[in-house]
Amino acid sequence: MSFPSQPEEQALHERVLARDSLAWEDVFKVFMDPIIAGLSKRPGQSQEDARDATIDVIYEYLNDPERYVPDKARLHIYLAQAARKRTVDRYRSNAARHRREQEYGGVFELRAMPPKDSLEITVEARRMADRLAQQPLTETDHHVIKLVMEGERSTHVLAEAMGLPESEETVRRREVKRNRDRLMKVLGRLRKEDSDV
């Protein structure tokens, strides 16, 4: 369990900068085990905290690789030091939870999509929205579809949007699932019709 050579680290960093999809997976493969092993040697350091901290700093690096300056330190040192700092950051869990709770639709960014792809996707989405509007669905159904597409997963919120009466939790959950599945089937059918055109 050792770190790669400096040229190997540099080559991997350059692949990350070039937005090479597989480089992300390779960063995990190369750095996770040795960094966790190093952190876990510290007194009072749990394996789980070391693992979570390392995962967090690797995602931070991958999200903004330009922040790493190769002239200042080797990549594995940069990551290991950040992970060590992270293990003592008591606010980590709150920040992670906040990130997870961000609204799906609001955070799905399209800015890096090439104009051609972006246009095609927009055209298809518009076509699908038009077809969806022509479906024999109620206004409530359309509202629920919108919520689901925005990433809403709460049984309570969806039940309210569906106008379901108060009932036992398991019954409510089953009803929400049944309704949701019905609407998702409509979407699935539209998607299939669209791809058949």
Binding site: G105, F108, A125, A129, A133, Q134, T138, H142, E150, L187
Partner: peptide, 24 residues
């Protein structure tokens, strides 16, 4: 990607009403 775009295109910032809701 299509679903995400569809979700965004259904938002109406001013009225809070979606395009599919209006069509419906």
């Amino acid at each position: 990607e299509i679903m995400a775009t569809l979700a965004m295109s259904t938002r109406d910032e001013q009225t809070g009403t979606s395009r599919i809701q209006l069509a419906a």
